[in-house]
């Protein structure tokens, strides 16, 4: 038996999922991960590099990779594509000026061969801020309807501040991945 198949077997047995969180800097990735994990979110520095959180979610173990979104760090994103089951793209819905940036970075990601099989969850974050665009408006700006038909995707409005929408988003993501990977059980 090849090593790769050994690894796959183990992964399957533990019901592990690898989830990659990316998005522009300041979009709220780290806050979201800590919030889901029930941790204190009051002091968070911009991410220099990346963090991994292992979270048990329903009957699955999620390995969540939270990678910094500062320009300098974006060139490292490609290092994390391998074996990604779920991709979470976080948007600061109140940052109107950088929506173009946000769109072009997302478009680049979606061209990646290595991410082509990953389920895509778009979190329209910071919905608690007055003046934030709604998930529908974000979907329009990002032109999500034009996405490759084979891609499983969903967009959910949320606030890492209040916690609203986070579970809805992750429930969808985990179910979607599970239905693709663990069909056999």
């Amino acid at each position: 038996m090849g090593l790769l198949s050994i690894i796959r077997k183990i992964k399957r047995k533990e019901k592990e999922m690898r989830i990659l969180m990316v998005g522009l800097d300041n979009s709220g990735k780290t806050t979201i991960v800590l919030k889901i994990n029930g941790e204190d979110t009051s002091v968070i520095s911009p991410t220099l590099g990346f963090n991994i959180k292992t979270i048990v979610y329903q009957k699955y173990t999620l390995n969540i990779w939270d990678v910094g979104g500062q320009k300098t760090i974006r060139s490292y994103w490609r290092n994390y594509f391998e074996q990604t089951d779920g991709l979470v793209w976080v948007v600061d819905s109140s940052d109107l000026r950088r929506l173009d940036d946000c769109k072009s970075e997302l478009d680049n990601l979606l061209k990646e061969e290595r991410l082509s099989g990953a389920s895509l969850l778009i979190l329209a974050n910071k919905q608690d801020i007055k003046g934030a665009l709604s998930p529908e408006e974000i979907a329009k700006v990002l032109n999500l309807e034009a996405m490759d038909k084979t891609r499983h995707w969903n967009i959910v409005g949320c606030s890492a501040f209040t916690g609203e929408g986070l579970l809805e988003g992750f429930d969808w993501l985990v179910q979607d991945i599970a239905s693709r990977i663990y069909v056999l059980d």
Binding site: G2, F50, N51, I52, E82
Partner: peptide
């Protein structure tokens, strides 16, 4: 294939090591 996958797994380990320590490492 299996050779390269093995090396790739080792690199991932190294990466995890960095990630897990990135909280206290100087930037």
């Amino acid at each position: 294939r299996s050779h390269l996958d093995g090396i790739s797994a080792s690199i991932s380990d190294l990466e995890k090591l960095v990630a897990e320590t990135s909280y206290f490492l100087p930037s």
